[in-house]
Amino acid sequence: MSEVLTRVADGTQAPHTVSVAGADRSGRGRAVLVTVLKSLLALVFGLPLLFMIVSSFKPDTQIFADLGGVRAFLPVGDIGLDNYTGVFDRVPFAQFLFNSVFISVATVVGGLVVNSMAAFVLARMRFRGQKVMLAVILATLIVPFEVMALPLLWEVNLLPYFDGVEFSQGWLDTYAVQIVPFIANAFSIFLFYQYFDTIPKELDEAAMIDGAGWFRIYRSIIVPLSGPAIATVAILTFLPAWNQYLWPLMVTQSEAVRPAMVGIDYFRQLNVSWGQLMAYASVITVPVLVLFIAFQRSFVNSIASSGVKG
């Protein structure tokens, strides 16, 4: 470096050239370092997934024999599809998958409508107690679900239920009990509220002059302008709905309405079927992976804008 500086000082080398070359080198070095660090980080998060998928093709004995080394992450040895065959023999997989998809999609759809409407009212309309209402809604964010689980169980157990033919008491063992309590969500309302608040209020006034009512403003102006917020809320609602475990465990009793996540317990017997467990975990991860690949940009944006991690 000192030699280069000397040459620049005595005029044998153009300073401009030196700085660009030096900047290029240091830039490349930094890029390589960042890439290496990113790769290491990717390995930390990627290896468990790779282990899960690779192990799903191996018999139990080999999974444990390979554990000590790099073979654990390689599709080598006695590879086959027996674990996947076993999964489909052991659990009503199609039923569980349908249940999970239905519950998650219904929660997302219901959540988008209800929470965006609630946020619209709080962000765009003016009425007494508006701020207090927003504060109360946000305050519910600090209460963990585990605290509310038992009271919620008692509550849904007392509600009237109509199955299309007759009324009965209690929502246990239904789709409804896995969807309805999770539609209204304070965090989603907050995200929508934040976004709606940035849309100029003049749009509402102009629409009102043209004769539009509040619902028309919501439907024709605010919703079409809120694509990013809708994507964010959809993703952040779908993931917890898909991953629900404790609640369905408490409220479902039959396989007809049991979601895929609870199905993983089917493989944890006295003699655990590790290969089948890995195969099942791989298969129920696929829908989330597909969703991630399809909406990768929205995923990243949603996490960046919401401050949610993991």
Binding site: A106, Y161, G164, Y175, A176, I183, A256, V257
Partner: peptide, 11 residues
């Protein structure tokens, strides 16, 4: 929502 969710009950 109720129609969507109310059709099935495990029983």
């Amino acid at each position: 929502t109720l129609l969507l969710t109310g059709c099935a009950k495990g029983g």
